[in-house]
């Protein structure tokens, strides 16, 4: 049992970039310049930045679809240069914006591609496919359908679980939800986070949408033109104290509000519920501070009554408390 865990089933790996530089031939500026960062095992690292900042390039260096010129990248302490590129890729889940499902294969066969390449026994492949199809909310019957028979959102779900199929330690995702409508995108983001809870991988996730980065990332790496790392930190830290003007502009003038969206009322200290104003609006502990603030402003109320799941009053939230939270570093 313990052995199986050690062998890597479902485990995650630490990824380290050290002084990595990539120059495309015939280009003056580097696409990625002296990039150093550590993605701890099991965390989601979001690469974000304007178009052309080298996000895709940096991500593709990890599975060697692009080779770097200088520096090194290690996965679990091993340099990826020492590994056979094909073997390396089979151990890394890969999801792209255009999805790239194989149109001539059914959903089930698409998901089974890498397990088959790895020579898994038939029975195990069948079980894994069934498990993933269910995990991502498709019907069992969808397994035998072709990609052309699915909606865009369903296709992206299949693309996502196809990458998870062989239980990789690392996932690379390049704007996987970029082409979806806002509602489907939101739903898939939530599903992705749920999947991540179930099967913890080390994820490098590329997007140019700062809100997506804040929502999904344990850490955010902000790249600027020329492939230079501008800041690498937890979302809250970046929103609280942007390293420079570029980062501040990139995260937006509403960074204070975005920061409030990161925390729920259950995570902060509330005022004691003495002398509750009878007409104060109510909300649950699961509400984000940002939504709570919005509620107070729209209701024109100074205070908000916070109730827990059983309807008991948990405390009081005041506008003053919110602004004090914003001032925290």
């Amino acid at each position: 049992m313990a052995d199986r865990k050690a062998a890597g089933a479902g485990a995650a790996a630490e990824i380290v970039f050290s002084h990595v530089t990539k120059h495309y031939p015939g280009r003056r500026a580097a696409a990625v310049k002296d990039l150093s960062l550590v993605v701890p095992a099991g965390e989601i690292c979001v690469l974000v930045g304007p178009s052309g900042a080298g996000k895709t390039t940096a991500m593709k260096l990890v599975n060697r679809l692009i080779d770097f010129d200088e520096g090194d990248i290690t996965i679990d302490g091993r340099s990826i240069r020492e590994l056979d590129a094909v073997e390396l890729r089979r151990g890394i889940g890969y999801v792209i914006q255009q999805i790239g499902l194989f149109p001539h294969m059914t959903v089930g066969d698409n998901i089974a591609v890498v397990p088959r390449l790895l020579g898994w026994p038939k029975q195990r492949i069948r079980e894994r496919v069934a498990e993933l199809v269910e995990l991502v909310g498709l019907e069992a019957g969808d397994r035998d359908r072709y990609p052309s028979q699915l909606s865009g959102g369903q296709r992206q779900r299949v693309g996502l679980v196809r990458a998870l199929a062989a239980e990789p330690k690392v996932m690379l995702m390049d704007e996987p939800f970029g082409a979806l409508d806002p509602i489907t995108r939101d739903r898939l983001q939530n599903e992705f986070l749920r999947l991540h809870e179930v099967e913890r991988k080390t994820v490098i996730f590329v997007t140019h949408d700062i809100d997506e980065a804040i929502k999904l990332g344990d850490r955010i790496a902000i790249l600027r033109e020329g492939g230079v790392l501008a800041q690498y930190d937890a979302p809250d830290a970046i929103l609280a104290s942007p390293a420079d003007d570029f980062v501040a502009r990139f995260v937006g003038a509403d960074r204070g509000l975005k920061r409030l969206a990161l925390r729920r009322l259950s995570e902060i200290e509330l005022d004691s519920p003495n002398g509750i104003p009878p007409d104060a609006p109510r909300t649950s502990l699961q509400t984000t501070i940002r939504d709570a603030l919005s509620l107070m402003l729209t209701e024109g109320a100074e205070n908000l009554v916070v109730v827990d799941d059983s309807g008991e009053v948990a405390g009081l939230l005041s506008v003053g408390r919110v602004s004090r939270l914003l001032a925290e570093p």
């Binding site: 599975n63 094909v86 089979r90 890394i92 792209i96 255009q98 790239g100 390449l117």
Partner: peptide
């Protein structure tokens, strides 16, 4: 053959002949 399909195939670790 769509470019994204080839890209996905390469990224998933299929060899040239595969």
């Amino acid at each position: 053959v769509p470019e994204d399909v080839l890209e996905a195939a390469r990224g998933m670790g299929l060899r040239g002949r595969e």
